[in-house]
Structures are given as C-alpha cells and as structure tokens.
C-alpha cells in the first residue's frame, strides 16, 4: 500500500531532489490564518506539510514552538479543529502529504481508535509523536500502521547502530533524523556530521531520510539537501509568523505572505542543492 508520503518521495527522487518539509502549528495564530497558511504552503514550495498538534507541555520543543502551541491553544485550537483543518485543506489539495506532529496525551485523551479513524477520514497521511519511542509501540504506532497511516520515527545522534534497527522497525513513510542533541530551534546542525549520519541511517533502511531541528536558512537547507532526502524547517517559519503578528498577537495583513516568502526561499535552497550520488 502506498501513501501520499511514499508517492511524494518517489516523485522527488525521480526529479533528483530532496523534499522541503515545513512545520507550522495548527491553529497558530488562529484557525483561519493557519488554514490559509497551510493552503498556501504547497505553492510556495513545501513538498510535505507537518502540522503541529498543540500541547501545553512540549518537552522536546524550544521557545519558538512552545509559544506557537500556546498561541494556538489560546485561540481555541483543539484536536477536533486540527482534524477539521486537514479536512478543509484536502478539499483543494489531494496530493500534498500531511503529517501530524505532537505529543501523545491529546491523542490518548481523544481516544486512539477514534483518532485514527478521524485522522484517516480527514486526509492525514502520517504521524510523528515525540514521546512515543519504540518501547511504547503498542500504544499508537502499531494501531496506526494497521489502520494505514505512516508512523514516522525520530532517529537522533544518540541512536547508535545497536539501537537503530529497533527505531527503524515499524517506521514507515520516512525517517526523521534529529540533527542535534537538543530541542527544536536550538543549535545549528553541522552539515558534514549530518551527512555522515544520513549515510549511517541509509545503511539500515531503504526509507527516505529527512533532517530537521535547527535548520533556519536557505543556505543550511541547501547544504543538508545535498545528501538527505528531505529537509524539515519549523522554528524559523514559526518565528517569521510570530514576527508578523500585531501588538495584540493577532494575525497581520502580511502574516501568510511572511510565511510563504520564507518557504519560497527555503524551497529555492533545497532545489539548488547539488545532490551527492547515492552510495
């Protein structure tokens, strides 16, 4: 069974370039603006859309994404509205993969079975749940795979060769390599080290490998896109969004454009990468 994620990465491979994966928070700064941003992302150059499910206690996120989650919650975002946002996005775009990213508790409280059913019905393709390591696969990973969703696992610099097979087992869609030991939006990754890590993961899997955490500029995106199959940018986009808000924290007239301008630049960076021939 192929998913939108499989098809998108296969198409980009044929094109000979990496994917730009963007992260924005569902409901940030409000539902309508977040939907308008999501709809504008593919045209701006996003190949895969990651949508954050806001949570009060995002323990692996830095200040930018923490604040984005709190803005969304303050504007009344919840899981029902996040799934509705995906459904409304799907009305006009049936190709761009959507991955929901967040923490387990809001899913657990929504109910795992109901969440999977509703997510698939809305048009979600994959899940990234930060606080569900392979040790907790029975909670959501296995039911999600069974239901036909991709479950995308994070591999990190601390995931050694001994542990990597356990992390890759039951992973589908793509592998998300966390380029630094740290929280989102913190240190800048070292492109040489990242490239070596991508090679290491590829020795263990045929899945595409996307790299994220700390990628902020078109130049960094280009460097990583030389070897990785995807580049994930989150905090930088969220920061640009925040910068476009008015004094009361409401969306300004330039909010959507501020986001799409950055995404266009990032997409240019990814497209200009000189791909290293596959080893």
């Amino acid at each position: 069974m192929t998913t939108r994620i499989d098809r998108r990465f296969a198409a980009l491979k044929a094109e000979g370039r990496a994917a730009l994966v963007t992260f924005t928070m569902a409901g940030d700064p409000d539902y309508d603006t977040a939907l308008a941003i999501a709809k504008a992302l593919p045209k701006a150059g996003a190949d895969v859309i990651e949508l954050g499910m806001p949570f009060t206690d995002p323990m692996a996120d830095g200040p930018a994404i923490q604040a984005a989650g709190l803005r969304a919650l303050a504007a009344g975002q919840n899981m029902i509205k996040t799934l509705k946002l995906v459904r409304e996005f799907r009305v006009s775009d049936n190709d761009t993969p959507i991955v929901l990213m967040g923490y387990y508790n809001p899913i657990y409280i929504y109910g795992v079975e109901k969440f999977l059913t509703d997510a698939i019905a809305a048009g979600v393709d994959g899940l990234i749940v930060v606080d569900l390591p392979p040790e907790e696969d029975e909670e959501l990973c296995l039911p999600a795979l069974k239901a036909g969703l991709n479950f995308i696992r994070l591999a990190t610099p601390t995931t050694d060769d001994k542990r990597l097979p356990a992390v890759l087992n039951n992973t589908s869609g793509f592998v998300y390599y966390v380029s630094i030991t740290g929280i989102t939006g913190a240190a800048a990754p070292d492109a040489t080290k990242v490239s070596a890590a991508v090679d290491r993961i590829k020795r263990h899997t045929k899945l595409p490998v996307a790299v994220g955490f700390g990628v902020r500029s078109a130049e960094q995106a280009r460097a990583i896109a030389e070897n990785a199959d995807g580049v994930v940018v989150g905090s930088a986009i969220v920061d640009v969004l925040r910068g476009s808000l008015d004094k009361s924290g409401k969306a300004g007239s330039g909010t959507v454009k501020a986001v799409t301008d950055l995404v266009s630049a990032l997409a240019e960076g990814v497209k200009s990468a000189r791909r290293v021939p596959a080893k």
Binding site: V130, L132, E135, E136, A155, T156, T158, R163
Partner: peptide
C-alpha cells in the same frame, strides 16, 4: 508508568 520520552533520551 512506562517510558514516554523523546528518542534522544531513550539510550540514556
């Protein structure tokens, strides 16, 4: 109980 943590922490 359980071990609901980010992958970075699991090896630790």
């Amino acid at each position: 109980g359980g071990r609901f943590v980010a992958e970075t922490l699991m090896p630790n």
